[in-house]
Amino acid sequence: MSDVVHPVPVTTEPRGVRFLVILLVLSLVAVLLLAPLAAVFSEALADGLPAALQALAQPDARSAIGLTLLVAVITVPLNAAVGIAAAWAIARFDFRGKAFLVTLIDLPFSVSPVVAGLALVLLFGSNSTLGGWLITHDMRIVFALPGIILATLFVTFPFVARELIPVMIEQGRAEEEAALTLGASGWRAFRTVTLPNIRWALLYGVLLCNARAMGEFGAVAVVSGKIRGETTTMPIMVEMLYNEYLATAAFSLAAALALLALVTLALKSLLEWRHADLLAATRRH
C-alpha cells in the first residue's frame, strides 16, 4: 500500500481555466474529426442502408474496392520489408551518407503527392524515351496497375522506417550482439531478438502505411488513367461519383473507405488492449 500517494496537482491553474481548455480541445476534436466522419456516414445512409449497400454492389464500386485492397496487399508488405531493412541499417550501423539516407527516406513526406505522380508520368509516360520503349513493348506503367502501385509505394515509403528508427536506436545493439556471440545466426537473432522488440512499432507503422496506401488520392489520380472498373481506386471512384451528382454512391464508397480505416484502427486498439502489459514493457513513446 506504500505505492499509494496523494495525487500531486501538476497544474496550478484554477479549475475553470482547465475546464475551458479541455472543452476547447474536445470541441476542436468534434468539429475537425467527428463531424466530418458523421457527415460522411449520414450522407451515405441518407437513402437508407439498402441503397448504400446497393451502391457498393455496383460492378465499378466492387472493382474499386478490389483494386484498393490489391494495391494495399502488394505495397504494405514491400514497404514493411524495405522499412525494416532501412531502419536496421540506420540504427545498427555507422556509414558514410547515413544522414543523406535518412533525408531520402523522409522525401515522400515533403514532396507533394501530385509531384510524385507527375514524376512517374514524366519517367514512364509516352513522351519519355523509357516510357516510349516500354509502351512499344506492350509494358504499360502509367495509366495501369504498375503505375498505381509505384505511386502508392512512393507516398507510403517512410511510414514503417520512420516508426522503427527511433525505437531501434533507443534499444541499442547490446541484445542482438549477445545473441550473435551466443552463436545465433543473423536471421535467428532478428527473429528472436529484434522482431519481438520492435513489433509494436512495426505494427503501428504497417497500420499507418496501410491506411495511407488505401486512402492515397493525389499521386494515384495522376497515374490512374481513370479507366472504370480497371484503374479506379476507391478514393478516385469517390471523387468521380461525387462529380457525377451520385451523392449516395459517392458517400457510400467514402464510408466504406472510412470503415476500412476504422477497422485497422480498431484492430490496433484491440491488440494493444490484449497485450497491454507487454506493450508497456517494450514501447517507450
Binding site: 508520368v121 514512364f124 509502351i135 502509367v142
Partner: peptide, 14 residues
C-alpha cells in the same frame, strides 16, 4: 472519365 482537359493530357502522356 475525368475532367476534359485532364483526360486530353493523359492521352498525350500515353
Amino acid at each position: 472519365h475525368g475532367g476534359s482537359g485532364g483526360q486530353a493530357r493523359a492521352v498525350i502522356d500515353g
